[in-house]
Simulated assay, not measured.
Amino acid sequence: MSEHRSGALRLRGSSISYFTGKMENYFRLKGIPYQLESMEFPGEVERNKKVLGVSQMPVVRLTDGRWMTDTTKMIQWFEAQYPENPVVPDDPALALVCYFLEDWADEWWWRPAMHYRWFYEEGARFASGHLAREVAGGLHLPLFVKRLMLRRRQRNGYTSGDGIGPGAVSGVEADVAALLASLERIFEKRPFLLGDYPTLADIGFSGPFFRHFALDPIPLQLLRHTAPKTLEWVMRLWNSSLASIQGSLVDEVPEDIRELLRHMARGYLPYLNANIDAVRDG
């Protein structure tokens, strides 16, 4: 539904962006018309800071001219505006699971997704070329220079510069392999994480999967060979709409979802606690 439509929202981001893809999956599921537009750097940075206080990807321009950012907060706002067929289940236990899984997908799987994109030459070549052409038009430099700048920026900011050095690679990739194994067991039994139709949990996990793991060369090969049912889920979610919201959700939190929560507790919860301690200690 990203084609031009009168009165459509403007979703400004990138066609290979983690969080842009998450918002697109949400808008498509809810039947909210939107127009995907590529951000242009560095020209939009100051505008974003002026109207939002921060410049990050994506941003949404509402039809009344207001601007929004932060996918979690935007989805909460749109759910209030479009309350039919909510993405958060009525059952409080399943709702809590959705919030946990969305947060985990947003904040933990971001680094492995960036690792696979920028650590390996195949991914870096693909992503740097795409982004140099799509969003770096405001930099009047040769293409090869923009590609080098993007590689340096992304690696310094999100992979080696964010703790994923050579000694961490095997652990990061083992973490992804464990996630894929868990998801395969889920999608052997049902089409979406919590049942017959998508919830916020699926929307959250579309972030790392739709525009990273199922797009970048190395993780896409992993999905094809080790997690084909998860790869099918990525496309099933993208092809979902309001008409897809049929059937039922699980009656209680099943063991396979509890397995995901235990995985989250092993790595992500200590990470959150360490962040809290760091903020407290200044």
Rank of each mutant, 00 (worst) to 15 (best):
F205M: 08
F27N: 09
S2R: 07
A201F: 04
R111A: 14
G163L: 04
Q81E: 15
R5E: 12
E40K: 10
P270M: 03
P142T: 09
M235F: 04
A278F: 09
F119C: 12
Y82N: 01
P92Q: 02
R10Q: 13
H225S: 12
L62W: 04
F126T: 05
A136L: 14
L148H: 08
V172K: 01
R28I: 07
P89Y: 00
Q35E: 15
L269S: 11
V87A: 07
S240A: 15
F205P: 05
L200I: 00
R236K: 12
L94F: 01
S2I: 05
A80T: 13
H212M: 08
V97M: 07
A181I: 01
I75W: 06
E107S: 12
D281N: 11
E24H: 00
W104N: 03
W77I: 01
N85C: 05
L150G: 04
Q35K: 04
E255V: 09
A132F: 06
L52G: 13
E46H: 03
E24Q: 13
S38V: 00
S241E: 09
P254C: 06
E173P: 00
P198K: 01
R5C: 03
R185H: 10
S170I: 03
V88I: 15
A105C: 07
L148F: 09
V60Y: 00
D70M: 04
G137H: 03
A178Q: 11
R133P: 09
G138H: 08
R258H: 08
E134F: 02
R28H: 00
R28D: 12
L148I: 03
S160K: 09
V51A: 11
P86L: 03
L52A: 12
N239S: 11
E40C: 13
N273C: 13
S241N: 11
I203P: 12
L215Y: 11
A177N: 05
G13I: 04
P228Y: 02
A243E: 15
H140F: 06
E134H: 04
T69P: 06
I75G: 02
R151F: 14
P58C: 07
L272E: 06
V54I: 15
S244T: 14
I16P: 00
P33S: 03
Y158Q: 14
A274D: 13
N156Y: 03
A214W: 01
L62R: 08
L101T: 08
R152F: 02
A174Y: 03
D162N: 14
H140E: 13
D281M: 10
Q76G: 09
S55T: 07
I186S: 02
E121Q: 13
G171V: 01
Q35R: 09
P270Q: 04
R117L: 07
V54E: 14
L139W: 11
I203N: 11
G137V: 01
A278M: 10
S38P: 01
L269V: 15
E188A: 15
F78E: 02
A177R: 10
W104S: 05
R5Q: 13
Q221A: 09
I218R: 10
W110G: 02
D202C: 06
A178K: 05
P58D: 10
L261N: 10
V234G: 11
P166N: 02
L200P: 09
L148R: 13
M235Q: 11
S170K: 09
A132S: 14
M74H: 02
D281E: 15
G21R: 00
L96V: 08
P219S: 07
